[in-house]
Design a protein around this nucleic acid. Structure first.
Lengths: 202, 202
DNA sequence: TCTTTTTTATCACGGCCGTGATACATTGGA
DNA sequence: TCCAATGTATCACGGCCGTGATAAAAAAGA
């Protein structure tokens, strides 16, 4: 069987375990059970637990990056839309980073587990750093593009605003994952919309 | 010796271990070592690991709540200050929730470890929920107080703005803890200031 | 002083973990 | 067909864990 597919199968099992029970419970044995595989099979495709973790986190970042760039291309040339519509499109793009449905909730849940684990796990530190930079680069580009089309108030500090937007999205994600009854998908969407509208020209 | 002091001594050791190595490494043995105590002594003051964790998280929330209410009282009657100064005072208060120095960085680090652990640890779920509600209540009160004094733009949805402010603070804290070189104390302070200024009347 | 309570210190058990080693099964090409 | 490569399945070791049981030491009160 395709080794690539096998690896994906194992990684998906890891994601399910991590989303359900937390990343610390994603041991080789538990992941193997979830994948309905023998632990020996898992170890045949991954040299050890560290490599599995690293590969899983990288897979997740790749998938996320893929979806985001697809969204960006799909958006195309913003300048043909009115300003309000441009901000609406941007909000839709940013929603890809938020737990707005079950799929994204599971992804964001595991993402948060990974980056927090990375604080004390050198094997994941590089990927965590990469993710943080990637997020900020994306947000800066979005803001600059909106501003270039006149969809944002002039005179904004784009670096600071990108940081503020990153904090808003990260904070919403964290709260929505930890307290789903307190921070619903609707709350997330309204907060992002309000934030972008607060950056609109007068 | 005062049993209360002993418990605090153990809990402080747990905080140091959690801040340095992560909460998952805060085993009874590691905490006892850090406290320079025998594991038997620790177990004499705490029935088990679950009780230690619960007590530690409660202690931390109590300390934080104490500092915040002290800050609120210290602020006193805001209406005697000009609007800009009122927002500055509010920003100072909110800074108590951010990792602006080593002490607060350590606290926020452990806080994040606790609330993320609470997602899959029923013994901590209640405290996590309590913390989330407490944070939002505080922020709502701050915003309403500022608005009542005319220091904020009229017509704001205070519930939504409290949620947005909570997300900003949580997101800044998370990023500052995970990526200290990317999100510095100065960045945090500037982001909070910019946020409050964006809520100011025209 | 003697006694009771509190505190400190160990030992041992079972559980889960990652991992090395090894054997068995399956597959696919010469 | 035979053989090598790939994949699957177990066993065993040492490590760290929480915890029950127990004992020794220290402190406190009579």
């Amino acid at each position: 069987m395709d080794p690539e597919a096998r690896r994906r199968h194992v990684v998906d099992a890891l994601f399910r375990v991590a989303a359900r029970d937390g990343l610390q419970r994603a041991s080789l044995r538990n992941v193997a059970d979830e994948a309905q595989l023998n632990i020996g099979s898992v170890r045949h495709y991954f040299a050890g637990q560290q490599e599995l973790m690293n590969f899983a986190m990288r897979s997740m970042l790749d998938r996320l990056a893929g979806r985001l760039t697809a969204r960006v291309e799909e958006a195309g040339d913003l300048s043909r839309h009115p300003h309000a519509e441009q901000r609406r499109i941007a909000a839709g793009l940013l929603g890809e980073l938020l737990p707005l449905d079950d799929r994204r909730r599971a992804e964001v849940t595991v993402f948060i587990d990974f980056v927090t684990a990375a604080r004390t796990n050198p094997a994941l530190a590089g990927l965590s750093r990469e993710a943080a930079h990637g997020e900020r680069d994306l947000l800066r580009r979005v803001l600059i593009r909106l501003a270039a089309n006149g969809a944002l108030r002039p005179g904004l500090d784009h670096d600071l605003e990108a940081e503020r937007l990153a904090a808003l999205l990260d904070g919403l994600s964290l709260s929505a994952v930890l307290h789903p009854d307190l921070v619903t998908p609707d709350t997330c969407a309204r907060a992002v919309t309000a934030h972008l509208e607060a950056l609109a020209p007068d």
